[in-house]
């Protein structure tokens, strides 16, 4: 599934990374816990309701570069600026975590485990 299709499926807004929307996404991981994100060996798309600078920092350290914010959380200017340095994609949807995961799972996005 391409990022563009993900944005359409989630009726989402792109905050950063317009130029990368034709990239394919195969796996995703959903968590509000950055501790969990830091234990990942792979680099899936992150689906999270935690929307602060620490989310971006954690992704930087864990080398994740695509984030979907759920529950109508919107990234701040600080977050976008930091994410820009790392060429990240930031997307936000008003859908809940459950609905977001359900729709993407249905559309073929794979879990890590």
């Amino acid at each position: 599934m391409t990022l563009r299709e993900i944005v359409e499926t989630l009726n989402a807004t792109v905050y950063l990374g317009q130029a990368r929307l034709d990239e394919e996404v195969t796996t995703a991981f959903a968590s509000d816990l950055m501790s969990d994100v830091l234990t990942l060996k792979d680099t899936p798309m992150l689906i999270t309701g935690l929307c602060n600078v620490q989310t971006i920092r954690t992704c930087d350290m864990a080398t994740l570069d695509i984030v979907v914010f759920v529950r109508n959380k919107k990234p701040t200017a600080d977050m976008v600026e930091l994410a820009e340095d790392n060429d990240m994609v930031l997307i936000a949807t008003s859908y809940s975590m459950f609905k977001t995961c359900g729709l993407l799972f249905d559309a073929g996005i794979q879990p890590l485990y």
Binding site: D32, M34, S35, L38, T39, L50, Q54, T55
Partner: peptide
């Protein structure tokens, strides 16, 4: 609230 506090940090450093 910052997304930490799962008690995973030290074990993760070890790994």
């Amino acid at each position: 609230d910052m997304g930490f506090g799962a008690g995973m940090g030290l074990p993760n450093m070890q790994k």
